[in-house]
Amino acid sequence: MVDIQLMGLLNATLQAATLLFIAALGELITEKSGILNLGVEGMISIGAVTAFMTAINTQNLFLSILVGVLSASIFSSIHAFVTVILKQDQTVSGLILTILGLALSSLLGKKYVGKKLMVKIESIRDIAEPSNVFEVLLNQNFIFYLAILLMITTSFILKKTMFGRRLEAVGEDSRASDSMGLKINKTQFIATCVGGAFAGLSGVYLTLSYVPFWTDNMTSGRGWICLALVIFGGWKPYRTALGALLFGFLEALVPRLQTYGFELSPYLVKITPYLITIIVLVVLTIYKEGKTGAPGNIGRPFFRENR
């Protein structure tokens, strides 16, 4: 019995973590190029709603996933355009993306509230009550495994390939990279859109698997947690994944606390992940003496002729 409860917790943890991790990894890639995108929440919403709409209308899963990922990526190109091409403030632009994304997704999704999804991304094998770790893993769908693959690939590309080193170089010092003949605008633009695509995949996971329906503001602040995760992970894919697991665990733990016999208000427990993020940020900043691993150029617009 305890085992099943524990495995249920693990199962929920992995699902919550997958959702957080994919978008966080996308943001990590964007930030590595020197662009800060605070619009994760909006991008996830756009991905979530477009995927859901496509799924309702076509019942074609593959198409829905594609639409979700692509529309979030195209949406993120607004940020890329405003910050990379027009060199405007990244904080402001990112915030607009969040507000606009939430409003736009609510507008688009208005007719879809309460509609029942006929197709859903299925687990490898659907097990109602997994009783061991292996069964829990089987109970995940392909996006979970895709997330693991993306983590390994991203880490490898960043560390071991010239492509990744160049991306990181652009984010570290765009002037120096520019003088080496690297394409700053192109790199940053693409990295921002890749970040958008990853956030879109998170959105797809949200509406086509995690909670298979649509309501307004259903991202409920997860996009912001993703931003915190990148900092938590020190801009490293594996540590970001670890952070996602921790936050996923807390999110999964909340509704189960009472079954474990804790007499805490569920409303208060719900705020613990946010409290813990703040505490972790503080501890990490103190521990690393301010060197959090942030890309050197993050948030600063690049104009070649600046003197």
Binding site: M162, R165, S177, M180, G296
Partner: peptide
């Protein structure tokens, strides 16, 4: 190629990275 008065090296990277990043 140009050596600027304010160096254009990526400070957090290794010597090798800085010498090999360019496509040229």
């Amino acid at each position: 190629g140009m050596v600027h008065q304010e160096f254009r090296l990526i400070e957090n990277f290794t010597i090798k990275d800085n010498l090999t990043l360019s496509k040229a």
